[in-house]
Design a protein around this nucleic acid. Structure first.
Lengths: 237, 237
DNA sequence: CGCATGGTTCGACCGGGACCGAAACGTCCG
DNA sequence: CGGACGTTTCGGTCCCGGTCGAACCATGCG
């Protein structure tokens, strides 16, 4: 047989993600926050002992990072690369053959606005990307993004310092295919900055036990004034 | 428990990739060519009946496309998204904790030059990306690429028509992190064009039963004259 | 036609791993 | 100190799924 080692190490990683409980754990951590073992057990849908075993495996493989704090143990994704792999798998799962779509009510909140590891996704994320694109602040030529000089000034005014280090390992502006909208939104350092700043301004708030975020009254006003994003008429936003 | 559906569909896909035999099949198809069930059985390292079952599952999930041709059945990756997910998993597997590196002799050929789904990777892929970047034909700001006007002309002269449709679904120039060199090379339509044209010119040739490609004598000359890439001194290239 | 070759289906075997209950461990609190 | 809570370890059960041999279709060749 051929080069067996390459396929095997891929299989090890994929098999880790390939268990429903572990996939739920990783999905929950895609929110970008660190969660305790207990919270993750709830998300995984299995008992605490089982979850503990899963967490040990994931951490042992380097997918999860652990931080002890008192009698709690906080787990988070170990690196942005993990999130990127999860995104790629989500895109596959969403575009797969005839996905069943019960589209529950809580699902609607996720489609409106949610976090995607460390940046914004859903209709809000798309709207931000579109707005920055329309105003000439980023160029989204064929699915990839570059920040213009005007955009850099605009973002600086908004409170996002992108820094000058062009040699930084982390991409400044990466696009990420949205699994609900099937259109690209902004990831990378720019995407992370938009999320952080929006949270700091109180324009959006995290919804407990979910990756969804809700747009506040200040947020509706702010997003409209700063980015020209019209408030949505449906109940959620 | 929380939104279970999302994690489950991800787990289904990941579990498919998470079997060593299936991972080897997918890895083999990352070469971009369609392979017969028998060839894939050899790559997978399991018997023909087992392979047949795996192929049925992968095709049923929409990961593989099937093309019948006489008494042969050719399988290939169903979409570039599949390849992108595999790339992300490879990056994880390569950067994982203390990967064993036997680095056999055949591994060296892969590191020198290989195909990555539909474009070039390895030292040759990196060298091409560096050359195009150094000559101002592409801008590789923070890990993502844009083709300049001069680059478009240069590539047109070389024989790669990139087309004018900027609305095309497929990214024109995407970067892909190389698992062996840990640096980005060119993917997307540009990357695919470079591979196709190099093959057509006879500058590179596919190595049987492998993703590796060998640089021909014409290739050494051509890459040096056109891109300014110095021929490597080690035996392979 | 009949045989060889590539591929899939069937049946049976077997090992790994997910799961839980009970118990042990560590930490904070009264 | 002792009780409560969060987390992990241990032991045992059970089932899913990967594997192969043999038999079964389909296609091409002489």
């Amino acid at each position: 047989m051929s080069n067996i080692a390459s396929g095997n190490s891929i299989a090890e990683i994929a098999a880790l993600i390939g268990d429903p409980a572990r996939a739920n754990i990783l999905s929950a951590l895609m929110g970008g926050q660190a969660l305790t073992a207990g919270e993750l057990a709830w998300h995984a849908g299995v008992g605490a002992p089982t979850t503990s075993g899963h967490l040990a495996k994931l951490a042992g493989a380097g997918l999860l990072a652990l931080e002890k704090q008192g009698r709690h143990r906080y787990y988070r994704l170990a690196s942005p690369e993990i999130a990127q792999a999860m995104e790629a798998l989500m895109a596959l799962a969403a575009s797969g053959p005839k996905r069943h779509r019960p589209v529950g009510p809580k699902d609607e909140a996720l489609r409106a606005a949610r976090t995607c590891y460390d940046h914004l996704a859903g209709r809000l994320g798309i709207a931000l990307a579109d707005a920055l694109h329309a105003q000439g602040h980023v160029v989204l030529a064929d699915g990839t993004g570059v920040v213009t000089a005007a955009g850099r000034r605009f973002l600086d005014d908004f409170g996002i310092g992108l820094g000058t280090e062009l040699t930084g390992r982390r991409p400044l502006c990466r696009t990420c295919l949205d699994w609900s909208e099937r259109r690209p939104h902004l990831a990378g350092r720019l995407g992370a900055g938009l999320l952080d700043r929006s949270l700091a301004l109180g324009w959006i708030a995290r919804v407990p036990d979910s990756r969804a975020v809700s747009v506040t009254a200040e947020g509706r006003e702010g997003f409209a004034a700063t980015f020209g994003i019209p408030p949505e008429q449906d109940g959620v936003a």
